[in-house]
């Protein structure tokens, strides 16, 4: 019987499904993994004034702040994805979200133009001192499009270190990470969406992240725009932003990315929905995109980790009838 454990973090619910022989042992390991997720939450939650991310925002414009190696690595990945996606993934969108009315907290008073505040070049990373700096006062990190995945990656490391190899985890249903599949199966099957013919991702020692421009109530394809949000966006139909247009995205309806790192999948699925070209996504990631409500496209030349059911046949056009 699989054991399920859950916790609240990053404004959503994380859940683990673990299989193994001894329930007490599984629970103990699972609790350790949940603890890891909570530690990630405390560091990377932009909405809590006592998080490391909030501290970095307070110190923006000043000298770099020394951070723990995992925060440093995460920010390094942010900068890398931002660069390779040509800015469609952007971890500095807090001021823009606020300007668009998607965040209710009070902005820093600054005369710095918005374009400067959200310019990823303003993030400086010093690997020697493991420190991070934000160039201008008013800049702030919002890791909502990557932190859930990063937390799952850390939790998975704990499970593996403690000898639990058969597990499925998700954060807010939009990002999942699978270890070995359940006994007798080739993969964990995860539906992308709730309707009967939703595509499925087949996961074994891989992660999946799904982002959607239009979040659907009850749908598992709602990628959150912000970690630990206390305030729901007022406009739920544009919660992923196109940083270049400074508005809600009008590109893909949804994008699913499968790959070894949940953090990278999380970031790249957001970048795709925001407008990034699939060709900019690293070749080892498997992509599935939804340009219109009835179609899903598999990106060619990549590993395929998806199963797409036949589409519902369109209703045949009425035959001409005599008057």
């Amino acid at each position: 019987m699989p054991l399920r454990l859950a916790c609240q973090a990053m404004g959503t619910r994380f859940e683990l499904v673990l299989t193994g022989q001894h329930e007490d042992q599984l629970r103990a390991v699972g609790e350790l993994a949940l603890e890891e997720i909570q530690i990630a939450h405390r560091r990377w939650n932009a909405f809590a004034s006592d998080s490391m991310v909030a501290h970095l925002a307070r110190c923006a414009g000043g000298p770099g702040v020394k951070v723990d190696p995992e925060t440093f690595e995460l920010l390094h990945l942010c900068v890398e994805v931002a660069k390779n996606s040509h800015g469609f993934f952007n971890p500095l969108l807090g001021p823009l979200l606020r300007q668009l009315g998607l965040r209710d907290d009070i902005p820093e008073e600054t005369t710095t133009p918005l374009t400067t505040l959200i310019d990823v070049k303003g993030i400086s990373l010093d690997p020697d001192s493991c420190s991070v700096g934000l160039a201008r006062a008013g800049m702030e990190l919002d890791l909502g499009a990557i932190a859930k995945g990063a937390a799952l990656d850390l939790a998975a490391q704990v499970l593996i270190e403690e000898g639990v190899n058969c597990a499925l985890m998700h954060g807010g249903t939009s990002t999942a990470l699978a270890l070995d599949p359940p006994p007798g199966k080739d993969a964990w099957q995860v539906a992308i969406g709730t309707d009967e013919h939703a595509p499925q991702a087949l996961l074994a020692n891989t992660a999946l992240s799904v982002s959607a421009a239009h979040s659907r109530h009850g749908s598992p394809i709602a990628s959150s725009s912000a970690t630990g949000q206390e305030h729901q966006p007022r406009n739920r139909h544009s919660h992923i932003l196109d940083p270049h247009q400074a508005c809600g995205t009008r590109h893909l309806l949804a994008a699913a990315v499968v790959g070894p790192s949940a953090a990278a999948c999380d970031a790249w699925s957001t970048a795709l929905v925001a407008g990034c070209r699939p060709t900019d996504v690293p070749a080892d990631l498997s992509l599935l995109t939804q340009p219109s409500p009835d179609s899903w496209l598999l990106s060619p030349g990549r590993p395929n980790c998806f199963r797409i059911e036949p589409c519902i046949p369109a209703t045949p056009p009425p035959t001409a009838a005599p008057f």
Partner: peptide, 13 residues
């Protein structure tokens, strides 16, 4: 420094 508006918590455990 104009940093009170957002509320302040301990940045470290």
């Amino acid at each position: 420094q104009g940093k009170l508006k957002k509320g302040v918590g301990l940045p470290h455990p």
